[in-house]
């Protein structure tokens, strides 16, 4: 049976606040699925319900067809996770912490040492294997957390922002590890759209606790990124409303969106203006434009689907 993650009418309320509202998601097969949405959209809530850290107010969450509330032991038997940068008992070494998980997961005694050595080598933590975790940096702990997800040959891996706390090299290594997990179902939340584009084949986007879209990245991009071109322009200073308005009035520009304080995503109609002419026009504003990058299709789709950041 192919690995699967399924939620049926999954709802989670905290008093008057609804974090998840009837989420229906059915992911089947071996692939990597990016889970996207703004802060507070319900991504971590979904993942916590799937892993038994919190309970749904209504609905069902299943891993490999097993209800996580009714039989968490069976549901988690072939699923490993990283949710919200876990901490490890500070007096234990990575070897001991991973050995504890191996024992819990029923990894045979004769395979434990080899398995732990292998996963620690994969996350470049071999030389720290016998040092106490209490003295580790956040990034080093996250590497051990990543190693913990590779133990016991899981079919399903749930990763909540796995690059969190890692330096650029660490991020790149985690991406490589995730990409190497070809024969599993990886469900990964991230705010790094470039990372998701590189690593995942499919995306599920969620906002205000509701699923907006679940499809392949190609289909999502084709449907929601729009047919026009898009560039991201970075400025030396903050992008204020008058500057955004000036850019919006340039020939061929169809819309502008601030991606952060100093970045503006400029969508344009290629039939009306070529990209080089548009860049000349932006530079001609003498507003401190520093760099131009082609905005990714997924980013366009994200911005078109998700209008608010909170």
């Amino acid at each position: 049976m192919a690995p699967s993650i399924e939620t049926r009418q999954l709802t989670k309320s905290y008093g008057q606040f609804t974090a998840l509202s009837g989420l229906d998601l059915n992911i089947q097969g071996t692939k990597c699925v990016g889970f996207l949405g703004p802060n507070g959209a319900g991504k971590t809530t979904t993942m916590k319900i799937l892993t038994g850290l919190i309970r749904a107010t209504e609905g069902t969450a299943l891993i490999n067809g097993v209800d996580v509330v009714k039989d968490k032991k069976a549901a988690m038997a072939s699923c490993t996770t990283i949710i919200e940068t876990p901490e490890i008992y500070p007096s234990l070494t990575p070897k001991e912490a991973l050995s504890m998980l191996c024992e819990i997961r029923g990894v045979p005694r004769q395979e434990r040492s080899k398995t732990i050595d292998e996963v620690l080598a994969r996350v470049k933590m071999s030389e720290w294997a016998d040092k106490k975790v209490g003295g580790f940096s956040k990034g080093m702990k996250q590497r051990v957390n990543v190693a913990s997800t590779l133990l016991s040959d899981p079919e399903v891996i749930i990763l909540d922002e796995p690059s969190s706390g890692l330096d650029p090299r660490g991020m790149s290594e985690v991406r490589d590890i995730v990409m190497s997990l070809k024969d599993r179902l990886v469900f990964m939340s991230s705010h790094l759209l470039a990372e998701v584009t590189e690593v995942c084949q499919e995306v599920a986007m969620i906002d205000h606790g509701k699923l907006l879209v679940y499809d392949t990245i190609e289909n999502v991009t084709a449907k929601f990124a729009g047919g026009g071109g898009a560039v991201e322009v970075s400025f030396a200073g903050d992008v204020d409303e008058p500057l955004r308005a000036r850019v919006s009035k340039l020939p061929g520009v169809t819309s502008t969106t601030k991606s952060n304080d100093r970045h503006l995503i400029v969508k344009f109609d290629p039939a009306a203006v070529t990209q080089d002419k548009l860049l000349e026009s932006v530079a001609g504003l003498k507003a401190g434009a520093l760099t131009f990058t082609r905005a990714s299709g997924l980013e366009d789709a994200y911005l078109s689907l998700i209008k608010e950041t909170l």
Binding site: A77, S78, Y89, P90, S91, L92, E96, A97, M100, E103, I104, R105, G106, V107, P108, E111, T115, K132, S152, D153
Partner: peptide, 29 residues
Amino acid sequence: MSDESKSVVGSLAHVGITAKYNFLNYFRA
């Protein structure tokens, strides 16, 4: 590692595993 090589660990064994590693953590703390 094959699924067959993994054994199902009972709750009593889980109690022992948790106790062992927590005691180790206490003992060194």
